[in-house]
C-alpha cells in the first residue's frame, strides 16, 4: 500500500492510498478534485498536471520528450511539474506529496 498526500485546488489536504504499479493519474481521477485526464493517460492533453515536492520529484524517472513538450505549453508550469499519467507508483513512493495544478 502506498500512501499519497494530495493538496487540492482549494488548498485542502487529503490522504489517499494506491497500489504499486498504479499510475498516479488513475488514483487522482477517482476524486473530484479536478484532475480531468481527458485523454485517459495517452500524454495528449496535459489535463493531469500536478506539482511534486522536490524530494519526490527526484524519485521518478525523468519526463520524456513528449511529456516535456506538453508541459512547456502550460501556463502553470513550474520546475516541479509533471503529468500524473506518466508517473507509475512504486513502493518507494509511499508518503508522496503532490499538489494539483489549476486548470488551464
Amino acid at each position: 500500500m502506498i500512501r499519497i498526500g494530495v493538496t487540492d485546488l482549494g488548498g485542502a489536504r487529503h490522504e489517499v492510498q494506491a497500489n504499486a504499479g498504479d499510475r498516479l493519474m488513475e488514483v487522482l481521477r477517482e476524486y473530484d478534485w479536478g484532475v480531468a485526464a481527458i485523454c485517459g493517460g495517452m500524454c495528449s492533453c496535459a489535463t493531469c498536471h500536478v506539482f511534486l515536492e522536490q524530494d519526490w520529484f527526484d524519485r521518478f524517472p525523468e519526463a520524456d520528450y513528449d511529456e516535456q513538450d506538453l508541459l512547456d505549453f502550460l501556463d502553470h508550469r513550474a520546475p516541479n511539474s509533471r503529468l500524473s499519467c506518466q508517473l507509475t507508483l512504486e513502493p518507494e513512493h509511499d508518503g508522496l506529496q503532490v499538489t494539483l495544478a489549476p486548470e488551464e
Binding site: 495528449s44 513528449d66 513538450d69 506538453l70 512547456d72
Partner: peptide
C-alpha cells in the same frame, strides 16, 4: 510532434 500541436491548438 506534440510541441507543434500544442502551439497550434493555442
Amino acid at each position: 510532434s506534440p510541441q507543434d500541436y500544442m502551439a497550434g491548438r493555442r
